[in-house]
Design a protein around this nucleic acid. Sequence first.
DNA 1: CTGTATCCAAGACGATACTG
DNA 2: CAGTATCGTCTTGGATACAG
Lengths: 109, 109
Amino acid sequence: MGRTKYLASMAECPTHRLLQRLGGRWVCLVLKELAAGPLHRGELGRVIAGATPKMLTETLRTLERDDLISRTVHEGVPPRVEYALTPRGSSLMPVIAAATEWAERNLTR
Amino acid sequence: MGRTKYLASMAECPTHRLLQRLGGRWVCLVLKELAAGPLHRGELGRVIAGATPKMLTETLRTLERDDLISRTVHEGVPPRVEYALTPRGSSLMPVIAAATEWAERNLTR
DNA sequence: CTGTATCCAAGACGATACTG
DNA sequence: CAGTATCGTCTTGGATACAG
């Protein structure tokens, strides 16, 4: 892997864009939960206690825009919305798993 | 991989701490440069154009604290400081490489 | 050359209340 | 149940000037 010769701006560094996204406060928690199976929003809110409605929505919307999760509305009373990993989202999980393994071995604190 | 049963706070999620760190504006750029071999600060500053002295120092100090890079002072005039990946830093590179590969394949924009 | 010190702007994140 | 709307705070990152 040769040395970069000139400015590698943020726009030219997909890696940074990805890591920046994944570094979001609730992102990896949401992805890990959905990796275990689809969940309704309420369930997500309970499992990921601490995330305010606003942050949860924000996180979910971003992940949806990035095509990492899908959002399915089930009409009725009460309304229900189901979130699930997309194929693309699933393909990202091994990367996160690698990060997790390294982190648990090397990040004492 | 079973579903988490209760609050997974930030403190309990090493993965998030790692991703948060790596998501820093200049972190992955610095690591990638050093992965190609040790560099003096001035060289780093040139290669990673755009990073102000303050940000460069901040990034390097953080990486040093995390034992991902080493800092070696060579006395003399002018003074020279060499930065290099530590073994721990090297061990992280495959994880970053995996992220890079995924990002380049899936992150169109 | 290798940093430090200020100051400042923008964004991330959170608390709280409210709507269909 | 599934969000939206406000508002405030804290953190990140950048511009600039200066020091050993």
